[in-house]
């Protein structure tokens, strides 16, 4: 029952804000709606029983990528003919509150997926018994380090190459000047 309510509300959010992303005239509003879409996607992952992916989605699509995109937007808005009406001056406390809520939420998600037993606070439990063998994390790590080791290494290699390559291109361009 709860699942259904969550699913329908989440899909409604995705539809609404997905369309808003495209429609909104201001690029900042569309970015914010995109963030909401990404957040909602993480809810979907959680519903589908993959908490780890939900966390990844939150961390990368919910926070990292919007920040980079926002930097890009700020870069474009330096022109005078399109002033920016947006600021973070009064929302300092709000930001701290949101961060705290996010951290709590993360802890909650991690604990939920880690534990099979609700007796979290009893100290005498050994950690190995603590972990649910059918939880997502175990399956995940087994997958990454057995079948998909090469893919995992390849991805990390590509990441490294991208970082190094961008730096080198930047340096070469500077040298050319």
């Amino acid at each position: 029952m709860y699942n259904e309510i969550i699913f329908y509300s989440a899909s409604f959010l995705i539809l609404l804000f997905g369309v808003l992303t495209l429609v909104s005239w201001n690029i900042f509003y569309s970015l914010i709606s995109a963030i909401i879409v990404f957040f909602t996607t993480s809810i979907f992952f959680w519903l589908l029983g993959s908490e780890y992916n939900a966390v990844i989605q939150l961390a990368i699509y919910g926070f990292a990528i919007p920040i980079i995109l926002g930097l890009g937007i700020m870069f474009t808005n330096l022109k005078k003919d399109r002033p920016v009406k947006f600021g973070f001056s009064n929302s300092k406390y709000g930001l701290i509150l949101v961060c705290g809520i996010f951290i709590l939420a993360m802890i909650y998600i991690v604990l939920i997926s880690l534990l099979s037993v609700p007796e979290i606070f009893s100290t005498q439990i050994i950690f190995d018994e603590f972990i649910n063998p059918h939880s997502n994390f175990m399956v995940f790590s087994k997958g990454i380090f057995s079948n998909y080791v090469w893919a995992f290494e390849l991805i990390s290699l590509i990441l490294t190459i991208t970082v190094a390559g961008l730096t080198i291109i930047k340096r070469v361009g500077r040298r050319a000047k």
């Binding site: 992952f45 780890y52 990368i60 890009g72 995940f140 997958g143 991805i155 961008l166």
Partner: peptide, 29 residues
């Protein structure tokens, strides 16, 4: 079933997306 192949694929896709975005933003810059 019990395998998590699809979930692992999501991880890789996310990483690829991040890389692609970084490169695209550099080109944009």
């Amino acid at each position: 079933g019990s395998s998590a192949d699809g979930f692992v694929m999501i991880l890789f896709y996310t990483a690829i997306g991040a890389i692609e975005l970084a490169v695209a933003l550099y080109i944009f810059y």
